[in-house]
Simulated assay, not measured.
Amino acid sequence: MTFKDREPLGEERLHAIRALPKTELHLHFEGAAPPDFIRGLAKEKHVDISRIFNPDGSYAYRDFVHFLSVYEAATSVLKTPEDYARLCAAVLEESAEQGVIYAETFLSPDFCGGGDVAAWREYLHAIRETAEAAEKTHGITLRGIITCIRHFGPEQAKTAARCAAETKDDWLVGFGMAGDENKGKQRDFAYSFDMAREAGLHLTSHAGEWRGPQEVREAVEDLGVARIGHGVRAIGDLAVVDMLAEREITLEVCPGSNVFLGVFPSLDKHPIDALRDRGVRVTVSTDDPPFFHTTMPDEYENLAKTFRWDEEVFTDINRTAMQAAFCDDATRDAILKRLERP
């Protein structure tokens, strides 16, 4: 049976699916910044970054590489720990309004303090303090994953890994890699991942968004990650798909982002359903939501309409996400209880 053979869901069911409590494992912190927030901050600082916005106020870019430069331009107005605290408050308020109860977000010391450990500690403290306040106010739990930036190169990645190793605790729980997947090889960054692993951090890496199945295999075999950011191009080699299933590697899938950027031409051509049917642990995230004009409720509704996933499928996907989450067991158990539908 293919997804086209399943019964379509009515509007009442779709509304119920949008309202489900949600978990998100793949969220770039600066990439979640509302455009109005960045534009307002730029105005406060008298910085002209008007070129990165469309006339309607949304972010403007041509393709993935240009997206990276726009992302970095938007991030350039975030100069202080206070700026990041304000960003954290804005992002978590918005996520909580969309029903997200647990999220893990990617943070880069390259943007927060320029890779200096002492400066990074100040940024981390500001973000964590704001996140803890938001948990009390909005009921959303946030955890951090430090990322090195692939196109900044392996040597710069060691700086990020050092920041991660020296500040690892029960809030900063993981280490990963983001950036331009077409630069270098996964194994070029093995030293940094080894450093993070020895510090007790959980590991993830972007792979298989732009490059093919072999990139996914290399992330698993050369870096020893437990999760893959995206990983969707694994579908091109069923041996890699089966390897992911057998090793219980979780994919942080961002369907709306993949379609928006042209990784796949449309959602019905996206392999998330096929990967799940093959036994791969898939989860759902937004990636950089305002850049890709998506939200978690939108992701859920679009997947439900396209693949005819019902409430039980999404509940199962959220359980999968929490089983793969990098948080401590007490946090995991608390969130799992909140995910149970009455």
Score class of each variant (00 low, 15 high):
S50G: 09
P55K: 07
P55Q: 00
P55T: 00
D56E: 03
S58W: 11
Y59E: 06
Y59K: 07
R62V: 12
D63R: 15
D63P: 13
D63E: 04
F64K: 13
H66S: 08
F67A: 10
L68I: 03
V70P: 01
V70A: 02
V70W: 06
A73G: 09
A74G: 06
S76Q: 14
L78V: 11
L78W: 12
L78P: 02
L78T: 09
K79W: 07
K79C: 12
P81E: 00
E82H: 09
E82R: 08
D83I: 08
D83S: 14
Y84T: 02
L87R: 01
L87I: 02
C88F: 02
A90K: 03
E93G: 04
E93R: 08
S95K: 07
A96I: 00
E97P: 11
E97W: 08
Q98N: 10
Q98Y: 07
G99D: 00
V100Q: 02
V100A: 01
I101M: 03
Y102Q: 01
A103F: 07
E104T: 02
T105F: 05
T105A: 11
F106D: 10
S108E: 03
S108N: 03
P109F: 00
C112G: 15
D116E: 12
D116S: 11
D116Y: 10
W120Y: 11
R121S: 06
L124N: 12
A126E: 01
A126L: 06
I127N: 08
R128S: 07
R128V: 04
E129C: 13
E129M: 14
T130G: 13
T130M: 14
A133M: 11
A134L: 12
A134W: 02
T137M: 14
H138V: 04
G139N: 06
G139I: 06
I140L: 07
T141L: 10
R143A: 05
G144H: 14
I145N: 13
I145A: 12
I146D: 13
I146C: 12
T147N: 15
C148D: 09
C148L: 08
R150W: 02
R150L: 08
H151R: 04
H151G: 14
F152W: 14
Q156V: 13
K158L: 15
T159L: 13
R162F: 03
C163L: 05
A164W: 02
A164H: 06
A165V: 06
K168L: 07
K168N: 10
D169Q: 04
D170N: 15
